[in-house]
Amino acid sequence: MAERLLHVFRNTPLGRETILQSLYFCKMLGVAIEVYVPESKQFVMYFDHDMVQVDLDDSYLTTPDSATTRVRQLAAVYGITPTFFKPKAFTASQLPDISTAFNFMCCPRSISDLSTKIGLGHIGPKVRRIIRSSHFPVLMTSSVFKAWESITVFYGGSANADKALRWGLHLSGITGKPLDLFTYKEGRQEAYFKDRMQAAGLWDQVQRRMRSWHQADQGVFEEHLFHVPHDALIVVGAYGHSLIKEVLFGSKMEAIQSWMPNIMLLVGPNCMVGR
């Protein structure tokens, strides 16, 4: 089955940067792109155990007449023929139901807040819920398109981090891009992480593909983020902990996304593992 990425298009310069990142991602992975050009400011996504209503800002409805032409023009640069998603069902007779049967979805850092917040690194609450509920990883774009030349996986030794590492290895395998690991050890030894990878059956692949492994123990987590290459696609597990833990200790993923301007692939707790 051909893999597909869902992209919600915004016909603005910022929207152009976003779709360029989706197109580059699709080109690298050989994934088809399905573009939704919104006709109303709200849409609904039904997951297995949750439904998410996304409230878009006004910029998503800018000049819809030229939207499809522009998407085709941008996609043609990458030799990709986009298809356009047309909602078939509607909640409350007016809210389009957007399918969740995709393999990836592109979300700008916020699709439910003002676009000005994107540069400041806020993940909108709806994007959080999509990440939590979806079977697919979410591609969170940066404000300006930059071709990524490597893949950096944030590995913290949790079950969700294993999943993220699997995705990182998968992407590295397909694209041939080098893989870097980043671990904030939080008082644990390197052996702990190696054992964990071995137990998950990932260590052999990691040894084959890994270019570098940055391990940090001392100092503030955010200070070490400078070691992540500026042109890397960051792969990180998201919301793998319980709600209480997240409220008490915060989410590493939220910290990374608010500090790092890189494009990110967020692997949620219900996300399927890559091929």
Binding site: K41, Q42, Q53, D55, T91, A92, S93, Q94, L95
Partner: peptide
């Protein structure tokens, strides 16, 4: 609330 009006029961 960004919720579309309606009778509710059909929803």
């Amino acid at each position: 609330l960004h919720e579309r009006a309606g009778h509710g029961v059909p929803e």
